[in-house]
Every structure is written in structure tokens, then in C-alpha cells.
Amino acid sequence: MNEQPRVLYWTMLSLIGLVIAVYILFPVFWLFLASFKTQAELAQLPINFWPQTPTLDAYAALFSDTHQKGQLLDWPRLIGNSFFIAVTSTIIVLIFGTFAGYAFARLQFPGRDLILGGLLISRMFQGAALLLPTYRLMSMIGLQDSLIGLVLLYSAFGLPFATWIIASSLREIPRELEESAMMDGASRLQSMVLVVLPLATPALITAAMWHFVGAWSEFAFASILLESNENKTVTIGLASFVELFTLEFQYVGAAATIVALPIMLVFFFGQRYFTRGLLAGAVKG
């Protein structure tokens, strides 16, 4: 009887969703298509939506020495730097976040809730306000223009949130499981590694994804801290196109596609954990 309104409802909802998706994805898709066009085609009017003669020239240019026009940055190097920073800081955040999260979830110590709350507050200060102080601090300790410096900085920025996600997910794991493991002869560390962490995998993956994506796409701090060309990251590389190629848009498209690829892969493979991890604690049962 009320079948018809329901169908209508879901159709409307799907349509709205589709419109929003197209609206958001269209520029991305257009950029993606542009990476396969030639420069002549890009300059042509009226604009072609689909590439007439698809070509990988732009990608080849980014990855080859011979096609470098002097000003083009060393893209394999940029990608390597970004990977190094993102992967290393993700590992650091995961290790420290896991132990800290476990401590917040399971141990009693003075000021625990205050510190846990403080972790969240620290996230509110992120951004432009910290740029200059951070720059001065990093210069003072000699870590400006250093990949290690950026790894440490991103880890420091990422830890509070990762700790928080992991702590709230560990709280959901019944204490009896650990008590049972301890009765079975496990030390605290063993019960954590063998029983608790396998069950917290969604939260660990979420924290790792969240941090990896953030570190991979961070721009502001990288741009003020990294000076030499061999230390730069992909986001700085992308930004450099703004000055370099006002007309050669195919390079921008190709570089943007390459930069977006790891993020898309991360979400594609991790999304089922991602929602579970973020919702941990939101719903009982």
C-alpha cells in the first residue's frame, strides 16, 4: 500500500545523491581527461570534453629527464619524498597511537580524562595559526628543509586524533577478553597484541588511512618548511604548476591524477573499515 511513496522517496534520494556526486566529481573528472589531451587540443575552441587523440605524453614528460623543461620538478623524486613522509609518519602514529590509546582505554592514571580531552582540543589549533611558530621552532632545532623534520611534525599533528580513535575503539572491546587472556597465561602485552589489537583492526586501519591521506596531501607546512627542490613533495609540485604552466594544462592533469591515485586506492580498499572505525562507540551493540 505504501510501496509507491517509498519507491518515490528512494528515487528522489538517489537522484539528489547523483547530482551532488556529479557536481563534485565533474571538475576532477575533467582534469583527469585533460591529462590525456595534447596541448593543441586543450587550446582549441570549442572545448572538447573527450580527448580526440588520447595520449600519455603528459605522464611521460613528468617521468622522463629528457622532456624536462628545466623548470619541471623531478616528479619521481617528489612522489618518493611524499611516500617516505606519509608512510613513515603513519607508522610512527600507529605505533604510538596504539600504545597511548590502549593506556587511555584501559589503565587508570591521574589526569587521564583531562589529557584525553586535551588531545582533542589540540586539534582545534591546527592550521594557519601554527605555521609561523612551527617554522621558527623547526629552524631553531635545525629541522627546516628536512624530510625527517616533516615526518616528526606530521606525526605530532596526527597522533592526537589517531590516539583518540584507537582509544575509543579499544573501549568497546570487553575487558573480560583481556582478563580471560591473562587467566590463560598472557602478559598484558601479549593480551594486547594477541587479543585486543586483532579486534581493533578497523580502528587501526581507519587511523592509518586518515593519517596517510592527511600527510600525503598536506601542503601548508611542507611549503614553508621545504626549500630545496630535491626535498619537495607532490603537493608543492602541484602548486608549482600554477606559476609554471598557465597553458600546458595537460601536465597539471597528469600530476593531479598521480597525486590523487594513492588516496583513491586507500579509500577503495579501506572504506569498509573506515566507516566501522569512525563509528566505533557511536552505536551500542
Binding site: P174, E176, L177, E179, S180, A181, M182, M183, D184, G185, A186, S187, V195, P198, L199
Partner: peptide
Amino acid sequence: LQPKERDIAMVFQNYALYPH
């Protein structure tokens, strides 16, 4: 003594089986 050193086994109310 730690629980693991006591040679005592325990069955919990909610069984506490390791789900994985």
C-alpha cells in the same frame, strides 16, 4: 601473584571467547 602464575582457570559470564 599475577593471574597467569596462579594455575587457575576461569569461565566468564559472557564466555569471553576470542572472536577472531
